[in-house]
């Protein structure tokens, strides 16, 4: 498992040179608190994100919870919720480390083959991941939708910076895209 720092070291070691791009790492350090806030925003809302993503996936495809569907009966629905949480958890780890290696090695490696063997529909899984991607962006920017959240609206209330952590939103989105690419 690597993080942003060890990734730079491994890259430098490949050419037996010193780590020269220290400025990129300094930028990582300088925006460290933002990153921790982003991780905290996702971790604190994880169970809500997971259940909403799975519920949204099922809303769009009711066949999943009818007899013969992949989220029927409860046992398989529970497995689905568990898997969504696992995926979100590894994306959170990747965001904390600033590197996708933990996500690749421990979550995505062989996931597609496992799902194919178990008969889990890829399109539905991808849809749930897409919903989590949108939720993660909203939570990192701290702009959850009042229209959809209604009475459950919950803001992190962390100090808002000018660009609403655009670079972290892009980074988190890239990890979700990685999951989607690995599944399809």
């Amino acid at each position: 498992m690597l993080d942003a720092f060890s990734r730079a070291v491994v890259a430098a070691d490949a050419s037996t040179s010193t780590v020269s791009d220290i400025n990129a790492l300094k930028a990582f350090v300088a925006s460290g608190n933002r990153r921790l806030d982003a991780v905290n925003a996702i971790a604190s809302n994880a169970s809500c994100m997971v259940s909403d993503a799975v519920a949204g996936m099922i809303c769009e495809n009711q066949g999943l919870i009818q007899a013969g569907g992949n989220c029927y009966p409860n046992r398989r629905m529970a497995a689905c919720l568990r898997d969504a949480e696992i995926i979100l958890r590894y994306v959170t780890y990747a965001l904390l480390a600033g590197d996708a290696s933990v996500l690749d090695d421990r979550c995505l490696n062989g996931l597609k083959e496992t799902y194919a063997a178990l008969g889990v529909p890829t399109t539905s899984t991808v849809r749930a991941v897409q919903i989590m991607k949108a939720q993660a962006a909203a939570h990192i920017m701290d702009t959850p939708s009042e229209k959809f959240a209604g009475a459950k609206l919950r803001k992190m209330g962390s100090p808002v910076v000018e660009d609403r952590c655009a670079s972290l939103v892009a980074e988190a989105s890239s990890y979700f895209d990685r999951v989607i690419a690995a599944l399809s």
Binding site: M1, S6, A97
Partner: peptide, 20 residues
């Protein structure tokens, strides 16, 4: 590669929880 971040993540992963 062992660092503070990877150690923390490895421990959280072993317990199956989000970063606390």
């Amino acid at each position: 590669m062992k660092s503070v971040v990877t150690t923390v993540i490895a421990a959280a992963d072993a317990a199956g929880r989000f970063p606390s």
